[in-house]
Computed example of a mutant assay.
Amino acid sequence: MDDRHIALVQESFRKVAPISDVAADLFYGRLFEAAPHLRGLFPEDMSEQKRKLMMMLATAVNGLTKLETIAPAVAALAVRHNDYGVKPEHYEPVGASLIWTLEQGLGDGFTPDVREAWVETYTFLAGFMKDAAASAEKARAS
């Protein structure tokens, strides 16, 4: 991720943050529509989960310029997700739902450059999380 992409992600997220409740509703609505089999991985009452989603997104986005500071939190999140039954293939519909949500929330502000920056960022973070979960799983097995 280059500085320009990081800036685009951070600037665009600042526009989404004020509508975080709506964004979380859009995200989970889209996710469960696209991948209904994932609904069982979540609690019935989603209010706390939605708050956690937006909090973790904010932490990740704000830490993109200093990845070493967010790496432990992102790795721990990956391990927790693994423990909840999240599989590597689940990251694809999550990413697609995130991009769709940003498109809805940002409207005309979701330019091709902003899309590219978010796709790159999500791909990087999802890859990091999958690797962290796999490493934790290997460590447990040995």
Rank of each mutant, 00 (worst) to 15 (best):
M1T: 11
D2R: 06
H5S: 15
L8V: 08
V9G: 03
S12Q: 03
F13T: 02
R14T: 13
R14M: 11
K15Y: 12
A17K: 14
P18V: 06
I19Q: 15
I19R: 15
D21C: 10
D21P: 10
V22H: 15
A23S: 06
A24Y: 06
L26H: 12
F27K: 00
F27I: 00
G29F: 05
R30P: 07
A35I: 01
H37I: 12
R51V: 14
L53C: 06
M56A: 14
T59R: 13
A60N: 07
A60Q: 08
N62S: 14
G63P: 03
K66L: 15
L67P: 06
E68K: 06
E68P: 05
E68Y: 09
A71E: 12
A75V: 06
A75E: 09
V79Y: 05
V79A: 09
D83P: 10
E92P: 07
V94R: 00
G95L: 01
A96W: 08
A96Q: 13
T101K: 04
T101R: 02
L102S: 05
L102N: 06
E103Q: 13
D108R: 13
T111Y: 01
T111N: 00
P112G: 07
D113S: 11
D113P: 06
W118I: 03
T121R: 00
L125I: 10
A126R: 01
A126E: 00
F128P: 01
F128A: 10
M129R: 02
A133K: 02
S135I: 13
A136N: 11
K138P: 09
A141L: 13
S142P: 15
